[in-house]
Each structure stands twice: as structure tokens, then as C-alpha cells.
Simulated assay, not measured.
Amino acid sequence: MLKLNINNESSRLRAVVLGSAVSSGPVPEVAEAYDPKSLEHILAGTYPKEQDMVNEMQAFKNVLQKYDVAVYRPENIENYNQIFTRDIGFVIEDIFVKSNILPNRELEIDAIQYIIDQIDPKKVVRPPSEVHIEGGDVMLWNDYIFIGTYKGSDYKDYITARTNMLGVQYIRDLFPHKIVKEFDLVKSKIEARDNALHLDCCFQPLGNNKAIIYKNGFREEADYLFLVNLFGKENLFQITRDEMFDMNSNLFSIDTNVVVSERNFTRLNNWLRQNGFIVEEIPYAEIAKQEGLLRCSTLPLIRD
């Protein structure tokens, strides 16, 4: 039986579901693109090749195993993208929440059912269908649960708007003892440099008191200032529009002082080392072309 435990983003990791790029299918048609960054690469003929993505994910797995993390993988579905496990579910405390994701991604949840079957059924929940919430928008920070959302009246017109206010309320009701703070994110269907697909595309806490942040990912300056006040300006690494596009805020913590990062994030990686982090650099630039990176590829189950 798996005893889940997740209370923040950076405590020592013990078990995780890492996505898979094996048999990830042909290059999508333009009409099939879920986000503007994938669309950009489909149109440019630079969409990532399966073998390159498999190699990148293997490098990630190697680092996780170096730190004795139990790594689960989804069962393989032929010709199907199973890289971004963060979208399909998430753990808060000892509860596994199944996401209501885009309908044509439902098979991805079936592929990790063998893991969910190892969890106490009373600890597995699924929100009603009108409740939209994806793991990339949910971030735990001890007493806080941060949730990215989109409050625009045109929510339904955006395939890039993944978590609605009903999702925020659902988490509030499920965890009444937590401080649930939602953030209204900037969305774009056409320009990936102006699209915070999930909260972890413009913000991510690290260590005990540090965070990466992109100011223009928030529709309301007050939301950005809330985080500046909570963490302290001196503890924040401010990323640029291009660094946000490259997914600099989508790192993954194995421990309070160990972070997995993309090897090309030179400015960020230097800052992390200056602040006492061990930075495990791996190649992940091909997977980044699908508007997801290291955090997006993981579904943590147990942290100390």
C-alpha cells in the first residue's frame, strides 16, 4: 500500500511518477495542438523527435535514481503522448486527486491506474465534471495551497485555461485547514511567450524560502506582489519573457537543496548555486518545445 505524503514542493522526495516519451506518436496536426508553443514548433518543422525525448527522460530518471527515489512509469499506450503526468493527477497531504483533463487525454489516467490501485481507495478522489483543475496549477507550500486559474469571462474559449474557479473552490472545501490562494494567469492561444499555461510556468518555490517568478505571467499585479511579500524580494529569481518561454520556472526539487534543471538555463543555474543549491543539469530542451518541462513530467507521491 502506498502511503502518500506531499506538503510542499521541495522536501526530500521518496516516490514519483515520471512520464514516458516511448511511442509518443507522430507529429500532431496543427488542429491537434494543445498550446501555442507546440503549434509554433509544428509549423516550423522543429517538433521534437521521439528518440530525443526518450533520451532526455532517461537522463531525468537517472538523476532521480541517483538519489534513491522510487520511480514509477505509466503503462505504455501506443502512439500516445504520456510525458506530462503532472496534468493528470496530484497529491495533497495523503489524498490523490484525479484531474478532469482534456477529454482526449483520459487514457493517460488509465495508464497509471496500477499505481492508484496501490493507494487506499478512501484517499483517492475525483472532482465532478464541471470542476477543472490540473496539477500544473496546484502548488503546495506548507500552510498554503497556491492555485493558478483564469477568471476571464471567455474561459471556455481558451484551451490553455485549465483550472477554473470551481476547481479552486473544490480544493478549498477538501482542505479547509489550508490557506488556498488563487492566482489569475495570463493566457494566450497564439503567443506562447504570453501564455502561462499553468502556475508552474510563471512561478515555482524552491528550498525553504526561495522561488522563481515571472511578473507578467499574472493578470493582477496584486497577485504578484502577494508572492513578493510572502517570500521577500531578495529570495526571488525574476525571469524574463524569453526565460519564461524556455520554461525556467519549471524545475523539479528532489530535496530542499537539490534541484534538477535544464542545462541551458545558465543564468538561473548560477543563481541557484550561489544560493547553496546542488544543481543537477540535464538536457530537456526538446521536451520544452511542448510547453512543459521537469515539473510537468512528474507526479510526486511521497516526500518526507
Rank of each mutant, 00 (worst) to 15 (best):
K37A: 01
T149A: 13
A192G: 07
C201R: 09
L102H: 15
G152T: 10
D143C: 04
V168L: 08
G167S: 09
K37W: 00
L199G: 01
F60E: 04
Y214N: 10
D157H: 12
T240K: 09
V258N: 11
N62I: 03
V138N: 07
E191Q: 11
S249Q: 10
F203C: 10
E134S: 12
F84G: 05
A31P: 00
L166Y: 07
H177F: 10
Y158N: 13
Y72R: 12
D184H: 04
S249V: 01
M53V: 08
F175V: 04
L4Q: 04
N269S: 15
V138W: 03
L64F: 10
T163C: 07
R303G: 09
V71A: 08
V22I: 13
E262L: 12
E220Y: 03
K289D: 03
Q51M: 06
C201V: 00
D117K: 13
L39M: 13
L299T: 05
N100C: 05
D223R: 05
I159L: 14
D246Q: 14
A33H: 09
V180T: 04
K215V: 08
L4W: 06
E281D: 13
E40C: 04
T266M: 07
K233M: 03
F265I: 13
I171E: 02
L236S: 02
R73I: 10
S11Y: 01
Y150R: 06
R295I: 00
L140Q: 14
D246S: 03
L206E: 11
F265G: 13
V279F: 09
Q82M: 12
E130N: 15
I133V: 15
Y72D: 07
V260P: 04
S24L: 09
S20F: 01
N81W: 07
G89I: 12
G148D: 06
S253W: 11
S20A: 06
D154L: 01
E29F: 06
F265H: 14
